[in-house]
């Protein structure tokens, strides 16, 4: 063995390893539903980011030509520049859908990010340290979870006014708790592994073990759960907006648009509901498909 080593050293180059991530990526792209979901997400994101450049109208402008006759004149048409029609006040629904998609995605992604950062560190610390610290940290989560969050969120929005920041704060406050529980459970099983023991035996400090050995091995679970958390956050925001407590006009979100569209559906303006709902559903489908695909791709049992 040693002899062959010496012979090969001069000629052979350093070979690149096949990392578990590369394996997972390959499996993910073999999954048709997951790729379809990813495609949906890309389209929705592009729409949210660049749709504004296609719009003929801004989201605040009123089209006085259609005002009062929205059902007759405000329908979707290329000619008038209202690709998705107008809302009840004559505002361009295309521009408003772009804007609403932006807000909804932002709420979802920010909520999930807070969950990832706070939930992972909190859960991994509780799980790794264990014992009394774990008990106290997880009981705190239990207590927070026992509080009906929707009630708290509504109170927050009523007391401090409706604003996007408040919405982010509210969503962030609730999103990390489930994550921390999942991460803690996984950490408990990881910390008994021999490679963690090897790191402990060689004197690596606890924070470094958590960041270097525990978290990377949790990444699969975290990513999967995060992709499923984003639609949940979007749904929460939509519900809040549906109740009329979400973002402030002229800003809007998909939930608020759907609420408006649902309110005016009896006047014969179906498009006011249909387009926001379409994007809402596409986004949710996209995230769920991608989340599903990631779960299959990252499942270590499949290796």
């Amino acid at each position: 063995m040693v002899a062959t080593t010496e012979n090969n050293v001069a000629t052979a180059q350093v070979t690149k390893g096949r990392s578990p991530w590369a394996d997972a990526r390959r499996r993910f792209f073999r999954n048709k539903a997951a790729v379809f979901g990813l495609l949906l997400l890309v389209i929705v994101t592009l729409f949210a980011l660049f749709g504004g450049f296609l719009a003929q109208w801004s989201n605040e402008e009123l089209d006085y030509n259609v005002m009062g006759q929205v059902a007759e004149l405000g329908g979707p048409s290329i000619a008038s520049g209202h690709y998705f029609g107008t809302d009840d006040l004559g505002r361009d629904l295309f521009a408003r859908t772009v804007q609403g998609t932006q807000i909804s995605l932002a709420v979802g992604v920010v909520g999930a990010l807070i969950a990832i950062v706070v939930g992972t560190l909190y859960g991994a610390t509780a799980g790794y340290v264990g014992g009394r610290v774990d008990g106290i940290m997880m009981r705190l989560v239990d207590i927070l979870m026992a509080i009906p969050y929707m009630f708290v969120l509504i109170l927050l929005l009523v007391m401090y006014g409706r604003s996007i920041t408040m919405l982010f704060v509210g969503v962030g406050l609730i999103s990390w708790m489930d994550m921390s529980r999942i991460v803690r459970g996984q950490t408990l099983s990881l910390k008994g592994r021999e490679y963690v023991e090897a790191a402990r035996a060689t004197g690596v400090s606890a924070p470094v073990i958590i960041l270097r050995h525990i978290v990377p091995n949790l990444a699969g679970v975290i990513i999967v759960y995060a992709t499923l958390l984003v639609p949940l956050m979007i749904l929460t925001e939509s519900f809040i907006s549906f109740l009329g407590l979400g973002v402030q006009e002229p800003l809007t979100s998909l939930g608020a648009l759907i609420a408006e569209g649902a309110g005016t559906i009896s006047y014969g303006t179906v498009w006011q509901l249909a387009f926001p709902l379409l994007f809402f559903v596409l986004t949710l489908f996209g995230f769920f498909f991608v989340g599903d695909g990631l779960r299959d791709a990252l499942d270590p049992k499949d290796r």
């Binding site: 990392s19 592994r193 090897a198 060689t202 690596v204 270097r212």
Partner: peptide, 29 residues
């Protein structure tokens, strides 16, 4: 005082390259 373990694969972090695994004690000490 260093240690080697019973299950060779389980004692290596699956998300780290061999180079990083072997370098870890150096990084620490």
């Amino acid at each position: 005082i260093q240690m080697i373990f019973q299950d060779p694969l389980a004692s290596l972090n699956p998300r780290m390259t061999v180079g990083r695994i072997i370098a870890e004690p150096l990084l620490t000490h």
